[in-house]
Design a protein around this nucleic acid. Structure first.
Lengths: 189, 189
DNA sequence: CGTAACTCGTACACTGGTGTTCAACAAGAG
DNA sequence: CTCTTGTTGAACACCAGTGTACGAGTTACG
């Protein structure tokens, strides 16, 4: 089972399947294994040779997406005025949420309950840390739980993705709208 | 096709199917016609005798839910200070969102795109009217589109439903949290 | 009470997906 | 160059759901 002993073409195929799956699932969260295999330029049997089930494939894609996202978010400067830091974090997070919107849906109904939440632990912790620093400095409200504020941020961003898809806002309006809303919502009473 | 010429037992069955469907779909958005028929104490064939397809059944249930909701919301006092009116409207809306959460999911993937939006027109208009009055009186912000504010309200409430389901908040915390968040988010800069 | 409306269960055809098996074939590793 | 690992398409079994057909049985309604 040594991963290192995989033949070169097998590794290439695994990568191709992973990226094809990311594309397909981002277009249609219910994309079938046939579609994905075809998009990867690979036989369906080959796909099953590498991923025992559709669920495990979705899981792998999702893990990869989170990892990529974490890399981006890790580069955001979270120092200085917490409000400005939040604006920067929002900008980057929004890009990711928008990009991976459909993939999230796919994960939610292919993965066991709680798994999605589990994989979101790291990005959520990052937001929480920032919010708590802001509270300590008195620029964010302390009358509501931090976890609630995180949830608000999450949902406002996903709402923006819906509004964008529905054509009620444009893609360059999204980030400023979200930021304006959150800064106001998080301000102390 | 005169609806009035339906036999009494047929009308009873239609009602039974409708309420059973509401229950089942609220528990599981993917509930099958067999489950619903069984819950209604009716044969599956009978169900298809009254509703030509699963989609039309879901539509009927959803229409009914919206109508019931509208009745409740219509009784909310929206006069006086717009902020207090918003608090009252939030309280009532939250009950409905929480109750019909799963049903909404069912509608979203059984009904043609746009249909859900279409049926939400009335409740959305009510919120919009209140928000615009508040803007005119200077107690709500005017730097963001009304439709965006409506969307924020919608998403914060649905987010609360998720938090509740995940056990991160309790059901009596939800309404105050939502209200506190929205009043702050909608305040003028 | 008789008839039309309604209901019932079973059975069937169809669809669209998942996951497996097989035997032939291709390609990388040493 | 050979052997092992990997790939391939076609075929198959399976499942779960939707929607339809039929014939016999019930129930309201006038």
């Amino acid at each position: 089972m040594a991963v290192t002993t995989r033949r070169a073409d097998a590794q290439r195929n695994i990568a191709a399947i992973l990226t094809a799956a990311a594309e397909c699932l981002s277009r249609d969260p219910a994309a079938s294994t046939s579609e994905i295999a075809k998009a990867a330029g690979v036989g369906r049997v080959t796909l099953y040779g590498h991923f025992p089930s559709r669920a495990e494939l979705v899981d792998a894609v999702f893990v990869q997406a989170i990892a990529t996202g974490e890399e981006t978010l890790g580069q955001v400067d979270l120092t200085g005025d917490p409000r400005e830091a939040l604006a920067r974090l929002t900008e980057s997070s929004w890009q990711l949420v928008d990009q991976y919107r459909a993939l999230l849906l796919a994960a939610q109904d292919a993965l066991p309950p709680g798994r999605v939440q589990e994989l979101h632990a790291d990005p959520m912790a990052r937001v929480e840390r920032l919010l708590e620093r802001g509270r300590a400095e008195g620029v964010f409200r302390s009358d509501l739980p931090t976890s609630w504020l995180v949830s608000v941020m999450h949902n406002v961003m996903h709402g923006a993705a819906s509004e964008l898809q529905a054509g009620r806002i444009t893609s360059d309006q999204a980030a400023p709208y979200i930021t304006a809303t959150l800064l106001s919502a998080f301000a102390p009473a």
